[in-house]
Structure formats: structure tokens, C-alpha cells
Design a binder for these strands. Structure first.
Length: 763
DNA sequence: ACCTGGGTACTTTTT
DNA sequence: GTACCCAGGT
């Protein structure tokens, strides 16, 4: 332990060994934030100031929580699994599983993700006969989540005008529907936990006595409700209050659009009487020019707590800037620069291409693909959000809770079993009339529809019976077969990938069982090791995940797995297993670092984004976003922009981003190609040929060059492979070594390596 | 049950 | 440009 402490720099050391009082650590990018957090916990425990059970550490992402647990278990010889380390939602879920009675939830309540919630709202609006023009489901969803994140129930919502009055009514009906279904949405997990703590003195007292130290990661990202929750949990400073250790960086606050309130940092300092504000300003990540760029840029923001990153690593290479005539040329330049970096020995995964909006990835992806460079695009659907996986999960949810109408409607007729829209409408009417879940209204119907519905219920009941004694992976496999999902996708032409995902779901279930160490024995051992249960939990309060305080029963593996699926949506792309160039939005890059970083599309309207210009503090948030992007780079940073770019179906001519005027000229090197446009090679010598493009020059509008004619054009060829038949949209290269963008159906395109001889020209 | 055409939106996103 | 949703037709 003392060795760990000694490795810290003076700032970090001061933070880790702070006395027991509320503190705020202003942790700059790359300043060893996670290290300080985990070492603080390790220090507190190893010096006997707190037991592992007395620590609560909260993060925003599962990734951060896992990272913290991994590092902590490397530092301390204690089982970390049972500690209260997790995301806000994960910890609140754990809390609600223990106090499901007080929460008024079924013990096996399921969690609605964003998709489920929207489906639930759509169903509700139909039932209420609400005009979807007047109240678009998305807006209703936004309203409800917004209200919950401010701690407001339907009765607390301001209802001055008819519009908001109706929204409040919908909110009320939505709550009733969730209760009937036995489900909770994400915001509900937090709000209900908050309310239990607020309204139940015994529970509040228990947790306040238990958690002596509360540590918060990414504090600048907390929303109002999360802050109030922390305040309630910590309790008053004088009496039995916990000690709060908040770590954050106001300059990296980029989530205001989803309710993050960086002002919580000011409130926290005031309301928690913070005496020690420690700044971690020594950066261990980037070279000097990169940090100079970051520091100079962010200094343009008015309201800051104030911080300046420094390094002892030297100045390094200047930041390279490239202004391309078009988005296409920008991508070509990118390819050449990346090739050079790879020649220099950089691993592909150490190169990141960042952009402000996902739409910008397309051109770049095309260029990388055609160049034969391996890449991975982050974003899009995550594993547990895929349609086929959601279908499977819906069956699993029905096993657990037949009243889950969202799950019911999702699969009642999938795979198709002759239950039409009219039958379902009748069923929903009947259920509404009786105020029961759909499964309890089937007997109200007659005719063929009723028989089909009954057959569905029987199917689910049969699955429940058959799987009762099965292990979780076996259960999942059985449901995939018995439900007909596997058969359905085996039949389908393009079902191969979906089948693989379903198989992956079985693997995920198996991995989950292994990881969680299911069974009472493991849980009991964990409790014992932490020395938590006997003392505090004798009050009848559970200490651990999924343990019913009254009966001591653990959650079933199935319920736990479903919770896991909702709370942790998984990776957003199948692992290629290949070392690949990383492509992602700037938001997605937060918390990551790479040897070389490209920030693309640095144009007015794009970055800063035009929508942000009209919002209060919008430009400041964009600037913070740019700050985050810059500070991702360790060794090399590239900035690029295009004078013209195809966006929303039309060519736009954007001006150079204002951020260039806010960067230190001495840290930038403007480069340009000898032959801008197409066909001009951006050879290796380009990298040393700096041009003298003056920084403030107005970009000249080069008319977009015609796209080079390369092989066949859109719709002129058909391609066959295992995916089926597809239309070639664009083609590069020749012979057996061609690459093409192929559209296989009306839903999306794929880039493929193919042999031109295999193409069938369209007559 | 499946296909097709029209209409629309389109910044960022974790849980 | 294009991705997605929904309505209405086959």
C-alpha cells in the first residue's frame, strides 16, 4: 500500500490522503483520475478508516465501474465484487431489489430501456386516444424523463397551459401502466430510490450509518436528481454524515443535453462546505503542443473553476492541420496520413478518427475501406438492443413476469402465429376495460383470435414449466428453440447474422452465470468476507445485490440476467478480433486515449454544431467538446476540415471552424497537398512539405471535382453471395481485388471485397 | 404476411 | 443522401 502511495505525485498524494471531510478533486484530462479514486479507496480501507462495506463509489458507465473494481482488486487483497461500486443506475437497482416492498415493485421487476419505454408510451397514447401529432411519443418520453430527472411526479409538474396539463395526465397514466406491467424505466430507478431514502427514516438511517465514504466519479456529469440522491445518502455533515470525495472536470462537461448539470460542482462546494479543492493538473498523457492547444482553447470559456494542464514530456510534434477541398479529399488525406503512421510503426488501434456527428463517418469509412485499412466504427445498436436479441429477451421476460405487456406485444405474433392487429386491438380494449394486463384478458375474447392467443399463453407457460429446473444458458437455448425464433431466422434469407447473435445470447448467459457466481453459497461467502451482513443487516436490510432482506433469497439467475441485459447494453459492435483504426464521435471518445488522433470536420455549423449556436452556453459546451477531443491524443494530433461536404442530401460550403482562431498558432502546422483534388497523390513527402497557408485566410471555394469514373455505377450490377442478392452502389479496384458498396435490401448497405467476374450486369 | 411508396427528420448518448 | 416509420395495397 505505501508503495502505491509513494508513486503518486504531490497533488495526487494530497488528494488520496485527505482527512475525513468532503472534498472536490478537479482532475484534468490524463491526470490520473481513476488512479486517485481507487488509491483513495484502497488507502481508506488499508489504514482501517473504513471497512469495504462502508464504501460507496459511483460512476456513470459500467466500463468505468469495472475499471475501478479491477484496479482496486489489484491493489487490495479483498473480494471487490460485493462492494457498492457501480453506476448510479446499477446501485439504485441493487437498492430497489433489496427494498422492493417499500418501492411498491414486484421483486422480479424488469427494467425498460429507451426502446421499451418508447414502445410503452406509444401503446399508452393509442389507448388514451391521444393525438400523436399533438404529442409525439418521443416528446412525451422526453417530458416524462425530464420530469423524473428533476424529481417531479405527475402531481408536481407545472400545469399552467392545457398542453402541459395533458402531458401531466399522460405521465400519470404512464406510471399506472408501468406499475401494472411491473416494470421501471431508467429514471424511475433513481427517482424511486431517492424517494425511499427521503420518506423512510429507518432505511435512510441505516444507509447513512453504513456508508462512511462516498466517492463520485465524473461529478460534472451528475444531473439534479443524482445530486439530490447523493445529498440524501450522505446526510448532514455534523451528525452521522458520510464523507464525500467528488472527482470531476468542469472543462469536460459535455452532457448538458441529457440533463448533466455542471453547476452541481458549485452547489456541492457550497452545500457540502468543501474546504479542500485539489487540482490535478499534471498530465501524463500528451506532449506539450497538444496540451498548449487544449489549454489555449478552453481559456476562451468564461465560467470555469480554472485549471491548466502541464506536462514534463516535452513539446512533441506540432498539431497538423489540413484544409481539404472536399469531404472526399479530406478522407483521402486521412488515409495517406494513416498509412504513414502505420509505416512509422503505430498499431491501427492506436489511431483514432473523431468527428462531431455520426453522419461524418460515412465518407471516411468508405475511404478506409477502399484503402484496405482495418477500422472499427463505434456507435449504432449495442448487442442487447438488436431486434432479434430483444425478441429473445421478451420471451425470457414473459417467463419471469407474464404481465409485462411490452414484452407480450413484442413477441405475441413473432414469429408469426396468425395473431393479427385486430385481435390485439380487441385484447387491449378488453384489458383496458378490466384494468388488467393483457395476459389476463384473453378469456374475454372469442373466436379464432382467442384460440391463437390462448395457444401463445400456453406456449409461454409450457416454456416456463420446461425450463424450471434448467441452468440459465440451457434455459435460454430452450426458449430460442421453443419460441420458434431460431426456426424463423433459419428460414430467413438474411437470418444468418441474427442466428449468430442469438447463439451469442446463450454464451452471454453462460458468461453471466460464471461471472456472478450464482448460488447462495457464493453470495454468503462474499458477505462473510466483507464482514458486512451480521452487524448492519440484522435490521433486516440487505447488503448485497438481489438479496431479499426478509427471506434472504437471491434473485433468480434469469431475473438477474434480464436486469443485466437492460442495465448493460453490451458492446455496440461485434468484435472483429482485428487490430483496427478506431472511428467514433467525440462524445464516445471521452475517457479514451490514443497515440494519434484525427479530429475531422472542423467547420462552422458542424463543430461547433449549428444547433448549439442558438442555445445558451452552447458554444462553451462545443468548446469543451473540442477540448475533450484534443486531450485524447498522446503523441500526434491532426485537425482537418473540408471546404465542401455532402450533408443532408446537398453540398454545403462551410467556413473554417472558429476554434482555429482560438488555438495557439505556434503549436499548429498548416499543411496542404501539392495537388489538391482527386487523382493527386498525397505521397509520403507531403508529410514534410509544410505550406504557408496563412491561418486566417478565407477558404477559397474550389468547385467540387467530379467523382472519378471507376468501374460500374449505381444499379448497374447485381452481386450474389451468402447474404443473398445485392445491388452494387459503388465500385473501386479491379479483377479479383475489387471493393464495392452493396445494398442487399432496402435496409442498409455493406462494403465488401469481391471479384468483378462474379457480378452480373443489369441489362 | 409482405411489399412498396410516401413522408420525414437529421447532434451528441449512458443507463 | 438515406434511414426509418407508417399506411395502404396486393
Amino acid at each position: 500500500m505505501s508503495a502505491l502511495i509513494q508513486q503518486l505525485n504531490p497533488e495526487q498524494h494530497a488528494a488520496v490522503t485527505l482527512p475525513t471531510e468532503n472534498a472536490l478533486i478537479l482532475a484534468g484530462a490524463g491526470s490520473g483520475k481513476t488512479r486517485v479514486l481507487t488509491t483513495r479507496i484502497a488507502w481508506l480501507i488499508s489504514t482501517g478508516q473504513v471497512s469495504p462495506a462502508g464504501v460507496l463509489a459511483v460512476t456513470f458507465t459500467n466500463k468505468a465501474a469495472k475499471e475501478m473494481m479491477a484496479r482496486l482488486s489489484a491493489q487490495l487483497p479483498i473480494p471487490v465484487r460485493g462492494m457498492w461500486i457501480g453506476t448510479f443506475h446499477g446501485l439504485c437497482n441493487r437498492f430497489l431489489r433489496a427494498h422492493w416492498r417499500e418501492a411498491g415493485l414486484p421483486q422480479t421487476f424488469q427494467i425498460l430501456d429507451v426502446q421499451d419505454q418508447l414502445a410503452s408510451i406509444k401503446r399508452l397514447l393509442k389507448g388514451l386516444n391521444v393525438d400523436e401529432e399533438r404529442h409525439p411519443p418521443k416528446q412525451v418520453q422526453w417530458f416524462i424523463n425530464g420530469a423524473k430527472e428533476q424529481g417531479l411526479r405527475p402531481g408536481d409538474v407545472q400545469t399552467r397551459d392545457p398542453q402541459s396539463r395533458q402531458l401531466a395526465e399522460i405521465y400519470l397514466a404512464y406510471e399506472a401502466q408501468c406499475t401494472r406491467d411491473g416494470v421501471a424505466d431508467f429514471a424511475e430507478l433513481l427517482l424511486r430510490s431517492y424517494e425511499i431514502l427521503r420518506d423512510n427514516p429507518a432505511i435512510r438511517r441505516h444507509y447513512r450509518q453504513r456508508f462512511r465514504h462516498i466517492l463520485v466519479d465524473e461529478f460534472q456529469d451528475t444531473n439534479r436528481l443524482q445530486y439530490q440522491w447523493l445529498k440524501l445518502l450522505a446526510g448532514p455533515e455534523d451528525a452521522h454524515g458520510a464523507c464525500v470525495f467528488a472527482v470531476g472536470d468542469d472543462d469536460q462537461s459535455i452532457y448538458a443535453f441529457r440533463g448533466a448539470h455542471a453547476g452541481n460542482m458549485d452547489d456541492y462546494q457550497r452545500e457540502f462546505h468543501v474546504r479542500h479543492l485539489i487540482k490535478l493538473e499534471r498530465n501524463y498523457r500528451s506532449y506539450g503542443h497538444i496540451l498548449d492547444a487544449a489549454n489555449t482553447l478552453i481559456a476562451n470559456n468564461a465560467r470555469r473553476l480554472g485549471k491548466n494542464l502541464r506536462t514534463e514530456a516535452g513539446a512533441g510534434e506540432p498539431v497538423r492541420v489540413f484544409e481539404a477541398p472536399s469531404d472526399y479529399a479530406e478522407a483521402q488525406w486521412l488515409v495517406e496520413e494513416i498509412r504513414q503512421l502505420l509505416r512509422d510503426g503505430l498499431a491501427p488501434s492506436e489511431i483514432a478518427v473523431l468527428y462531431r456527428a455520426n453522419a461524418l463517418s460515412r465518407v471516411i469509412e468508405g475511404a478506409l475501406f477502399n484503402a484496405g485499412l482495418p477500422y472499427r466504427v463505434y456507435g449504432g445498436l449495442r448487442f442487447f438492443e438488436r431486434a432479434e436479441v430483444k425478441h429473445a429477451l421478451a420471451y425470457l421476460r414473459l417467463l419471469d413476469n407474464p404481465q409485462d405487456d411490452t414484452a407480450f406485444l413484442r413477441v405475441v405474433n413473432f414469429p408469426a402465429r396468425g395473431i393479427g392487429a385486430r385481435t390485439l386491438e380487441q385484447l387491449q380494449d378488453a384489458a383496458r376495460l378490466r384494468a388488467t394486463p393483457l395476459c389476463d384478458a384473453v378469456d374475454a375474447l372469442g373466436g379464432r383470435g382467442a384460440a391463437s392467443l390462448q395457444a401463445f399463453l400456453d406456449l409461454v407457460a409450457q416454456m416456463r414449466f420446461q425450463t424450471a429446473a434448467m441452468s440459465l444458458p440451457d434455459l435460454v437455448r430452450h426458449v430460442l428453440e421453443a419460441s420458434g425464433l431460431n426456426a424463423h431466422y433459419r428460414e430467413e434469407r438474411e437470418g444468418q447474422e441474427r442466428l449468430e447473435n442469438l447463439e451469442e445470447l446463450v454464451n452471454a448467459a453462460a458468461a453471466f452465470v460464471t461471472q456472478e457466481g450464482f448460488g447462495l453459497q457464493a453470495a454468503a461467502q462474499q458477505r462473510q468476507a466483507l464482514g458486512a451482513s451480521s452487524g448492519a443487516a440484522t435490521e433486516g436490510l440487505a447488503a448485497f445485490d438481489g438479496i431479499d432482506p426478509a427471506t434472504g433469497e437471491t434473485l433468480s439467475p434469469l431475473t438477474a440476467f434480464l436486469t443485466h441485459a437492460a442495465l448493460e447494453a453490451g458492446d455496440n459492435q461485434a468484435q472483429t478480433g482485428q487490430d483496427a483504426i478506431q472511428m467514433m464521435t467525440v462524445h464516445a471518445a471521452k475517457g479514451l486515449e490514443f497515440d494519434a488522433v484525427f479530429i475531422t470536420g472542423l467547420e462552422e455549423g458542424l463543430f461547433p454544431h449549428e444547433n448549439a449556436l442558438s442555445e445558451a452556453d452552447g458554444v462553451e459546451e462545443e468548446r469543451r467538446l473540442m477540448y475533450v477531443a484534443i486531450t485524447r491524443a498522446r503523441k500526434r494530433l491532426y485537425l482537418s476540415l473540408a471546404q465542401s461536404r455532402m450533408l443532408h442530401g446537398q453540398t454545403r460550403y462551410n467556413l473554417r471552424s472558429r476554434f482555429f482562431d482560438e488555438l495557439p498558432a505556434q503549436s499548429l502546422k498548416w499543411i496542404s497537398a501539392k495537388q489538391p483534388g482527386f487523382g493527386g497523390g498525397f505521397g509520403a513527402d507531403q508529410h514534410s512539405s509544410w505550406s504557408d497557408v496563412p491561418k486566417a485566410s478565407v477558404p477559397s471555394f474550389t468547385p467540387p471535382a467530379p467523382k472519378p469514373k471507376q468501374g460500374l455505377r449505381t444499379g448497374q450490377a447485381v452481386f450474389h453471395n451468402k447474404f443473398g442478392e445485392g445491388v452494387v452502389l459503388s465500385l473501386e479496384g479491379d479483377g479479383e481485388d475489387a471493393r464495392a458498396q452493396v445494398r442487399f435490401n432496402r435496409h442498409g448497405t455493406k462494403w465488401l471485397a469481391l471479384n468483378i467476374a462474379k457480378l452480373t450486369p443489369v441489362s
